[in-house]
Amino acid sequence: MEDLKSDRILEIKDDISNELRKAGYAEIGACIQCGNCTAGCPSGRRTALRTRSIIRKAILGLEEVLSNKELWLCTTCYTCLERCPRNLPITDMIIFLRNLAVQRGYILPNHLNLCRMFYDTGHGVPINDEKWNIMRESYGVSRVPPTVHTHPKYVKEVQELISSVGFDKTITWGKYAKKEEKAEQK
C-alpha cells in the first residue's frame, strides 16, 4: 500500500509562532482549540473569520494566516480574550499578527491611506473641511480644537516620532499603493 501524501500542509514553518513567542505570547502553545473564541465572536457570525483557526494557523506558522483578509475583520471587541478558558490574550495576539502581516506587506489600501492621513495631520479623522470649524463654533467650542490642529509644530513632533520608530517606511510604501490604485483606475 502506498504511503499517504501530504497534500494539505506542504511545509510547516515556525517563524510566525516563534515571533509570537519572542513578543511574549509563548502561551499560544497552550491553546486547546476548544473554539470558545469562535463561538462568541460577533464578526464570525457574519463573516468567514474563525478565531480558533487563526490561532491554529499561527501555531503552525502558516503564512496564509497573515495574507487572509479575515485577519482584518476582527473588531477587537475582546470577547474571545475574556472567555478563553486557557486565559490566552487572543485579541492582543491577533493585533500582533496584524503587525507581522503589515511587515510582510499584507495591508489593505484603505488602511495605508489612513496611515498617510495620520502622518500628514496627526489625526486619524482630521478637520479637512472648514465646515467642521463652523460647526464647532456653532456649538460654542473653540473654532480650532486645542490639539495638533493648533500649530504645525505639533504635527512635526508626531512625524519626527513616526520616522524615529521607522513606521514612515510603511507609509511611504503607502504612497506607491496610492499611485498604483490610480493607475488601475485609469
Binding site: 482584518w72 473588531t75 477587537t76 493585533i95 500582533f96 496584524r98 503587525n99 503589515v102 495591508i107 488602511h111 489612513l114 496611515c115 495620520f118 496627526g122 489625526h123 486619524g124 479623522v125 486645542p146 490639539t147 495638533v148 493648533t150 500649530h151 509644530k153 505639533y154 504635527v155 513632533e157 508626531v158 516620532l161 513616526i162 524615529s164 520608530v165 521607522g166 513606521f167 510603511t170
Partner: peptide, 24 residues
C-alpha cells in the same frame, strides 16, 4: 491638552505597528 494628537487608535494603528502606537 495643548498639541495632543490621535491617541493612536487601538484597532487601527496598534494593528499596524505596536511600537509607533506606544510612542505616540
Amino acid at each position: 491638552m495643548q498639541g495632543a494628537s490621535c491617541c493612536p487608535a487601538p484597532g487601527v494603528f496598534r494593528g499596524f505597528d505596536i511600537a509607533t502606537w506606544l510612542v505616540i
